[in-house]
Structures are given as C-alpha cells and as structure tokens.
Simulated scan of single mutants.
Amino acid sequence: MQLPTPRGPLTASLFERLRRPPHPFVPFGPAPAGEPAVEDDDLQLALFVCYELHYRGFEEVDEEWEWEPSLLAARKTLERRFEDGLARAVPRPSPVPGVPTRRALAELIAADDGPCLSAFLARRADLEQFREFVTHRSIYHLKEADPHTWGIPRLSGAPKAALVEIQADEYGGGRAERMHSELFRATMRGLDLDDSYGAYLDRVPAITLAISNAMSLFGLHRRHLGALLGHLAAFEMTSSAPNHRYSLGLRRLGGDETARRFYDEHVQADAVHEQIAAHDMCGGFVRQHPSRAGEVLYGAACALTLDRLFAEHVMGHWRRGTSSLRETELMAGSR
C-alpha cells in the first residue's frame, strides 16, 4: 500500500516525514478549532496511517518507524483528540447493579435509533450505491478481525477462549479461502471493484476511517481492553440481520452466490458469535473484573454511535443525489 494523499497540515507533515529514514519527530501542535474529531478528515487519516504501521505498513515507509518513540508520542496527541471526540459524541452508559452484561448490551442495542442503511440496500439501492457501500467497508473488512485479535494475549480463562473461538471463525478456521477478508475480496471482485488492500483509502471520508480507528485505538491499548470487547460484542450482536439484508440487496442487483457469500456467511456465523461475545466473552470478563463493566458498555456504545454516524453520512448524501465518497479523484482501480 502507498501512502495516501494528504488532507491537511497534519497529514502533509506526517507523510513528508514518514518518507524519510526514521528520525526524531516533532510533536503535533494544538488542535485547531473546527469540526468534531470523528468528522475531521486530516486527523482521522493521520491516525489511520499511524495505526497502519502496526498492520501491513506502507511501501515507502521504513519499518523502523513502527516503534519510533517520538512518532508514538506524536500519535498520542492525535489519540487524545480522538478520545476526546468520542467522549463528546458517545454518551457513556452506566452499568446497573444486578443487570447481567448480556442484557445490558442487548438493551443498549435496542435503544439505538439510527437510520436502517441495510434496509435501504436490500430494497432500494442501485448498483452504484451498493458499490459505494462496499468501498467504504473495504477499509475494515480487508483486515477483518485483526484489530480485535490484539485482545487475545491480554485475556485469561473463559473470556480468552471465547475471543479465540470467534476469531478462529473470522480467520476461516485455518482455511485461507474461508477467511472473512478473502470472502469480502470476492464480493469486491463481483462488483468490479479493486480488491487490493487499501485501494480506496483516498476515497473514504473521516467517519469511515473513524470506525476503523476506534477498533485500533481499543486494540492497541491494554487500558481499553474492556472497550475492545464491548465493541466486538456490539459488532457481532448487530450483524446477522443486516448481513441478511445486504445479501438480499446484492441478489436483487444481480450478485451471484460467490459475491454474496461474505454476507451469507455472517448471517449464520454471527448468530453464534453473538451469544459467545455477549455471555462468555464480555460476561466472563466482567465477572473477572466487575469494576470494568462500564468500559465494556462504552466500547459497545462507540461501535453503535460510529455506525449510526456512518449511516447518516451515507444516507444523507444519497438523499441529495450525491456520492458518499470523497470526490478528489476518479475511483482508482475500478475495472
């Protein structure tokens, strides 16, 4: 993957430095007044690139940058802005004594009132809108499960076993062609989209990057372990029905079985994962660490809120008859 196009002073400075050999990095200055952090293209892209150094990296960036202390210090400044932005955007749920974690998560999800993007995709979206949706989701789905896997070595006992069980399914049970990221690549190819990793990084807006960045933030910091587990639980508990609708929509638009397999797989797998994540993983974690129940619920609330903001962004553009993607250039890699 190549470094993307800068979107402002943060990314311009960051990318210029990353193209050079590792050297002491001057910390970023104070955050300018402006739009909320989750909608700040410059901030979200800068943070995404910093996190990506812990995944597959960039061709023109020396791998020594990954653990350069001065870059980590600069990244911490970006993370503080993002965490503050999340705190303002996401009301922090308070656990109710005596209410099991599974029930608390279910009630949190039931209270979510965001627009039903999956219903629109099932019944009304045209082919270009469905391709847009898949383009957005490629930022996460081409590395699906990776951010949550950071939690495995930080757990013990039943919660660890539960997370491993979920992740093993996400990675195809040891079969490369069954990995969910590979199934999603097949969906992209079926829609004549470029299935290479990070192909559409320049096209997606801040909110799409924020969804991925929240997972990396929670996954890379042990202090956010409870939030990471709650995030995954919300992800799994809100997956089966929407994926069924995505499959219906893609079939309506002519998508074949191979193109729909990613969604069909999640209908069944996530119905099982929902129970494991809520009861065994999050419930087990809270039983081990009762004082951290609020963290679990906050992670779930972050997942729900960011997904709602994403749906509002996409649906808002479509209602106006405009693209929900950034219009900086033609969709690179489309066939």
Results as ranks from 00 to 15, higher is better:
residue 36 P to A: 08
residue 307 D to E: 13
residue 86 L to Y: 01
residue 215 M to K: 14
residue 25 F to S: 04
residue 153 P to L: 01
residue 235 F to A: 03
residue 102 R to P: 09
residue 334 S to R: 14
residue 253 L to N: 05
residue 316 G to V: 13
residue 198 G to R: 14
residue 167 Q to W: 06
residue 18 L to Y: 02
residue 107 E to Y: 09
residue 267 V to M: 08
residue 2 Q to W: 13
residue 309 L to C: 01
residue 281 M to P: 08
residue 121 L to G: 02
residue 290 P to N: 02
residue 109 I to K: 12
residue 110 A to K: 09
residue 167 Q to F: 05
residue 325 L to W: 14
residue 151 G to C: 04
residue 239 S to Q: 09
residue 286 V to C: 04
residue 301 A to I: 12
residue 255 G to V: 01
residue 289 H to V: 03
residue 299 G to H: 12
residue 318 W to L: 12
residue 255 G to Q: 05
residue 146 D to V: 05
residue 75 R to L: 03
residue 162 A to R: 06
residue 58 F to E: 01
residue 106 A to F: 10
residue 149 T to F: 08
residue 270 D to H: 14
residue 140 Y to A: 09
residue 91 P to M: 07
residue 274 E to W: 13
residue 33 A to Q: 11
residue 191 L to T: 03
residue 111 A to P: 09
residue 142 L to K: 05
residue 145 A to D: 07
residue 320 R to M: 14
residue 191 L to Y: 03
residue 99 V to D: 15
residue 192 D to A: 08
residue 215 M to E: 09
residue 84 D to Y: 05
residue 157 G to S: 05
residue 223 R to K: 14
residue 172 G to Y: 02
residue 175 R to A: 07
residue 187 T to L: 02
residue 302 C to R: 06
residue 173 G to Y: 07
residue 141 H to K: 09
residue 188 M to T: 01
residue 239 S to H: 13
residue 163 L to H: 07
residue 110 A to W: 14
residue 49 V to P: 00
residue 278 A to P: 09
residue 248 L to W: 13
residue 169 D to P: 06
residue 3 L to H: 00
residue 118 S to Q: 15
residue 148 H to F: 07
residue 258 T to C: 04
residue 240 S to L: 12
residue 220 L to V: 00
residue 335 R to P: 10
residue 32 P to I: 12
residue 106 A to E: 13
residue 262 F to V: 02
residue 304 L to N: 01
residue 129 Q to S: 08
residue 87 A to N: 06
residue 261 R to E: 01
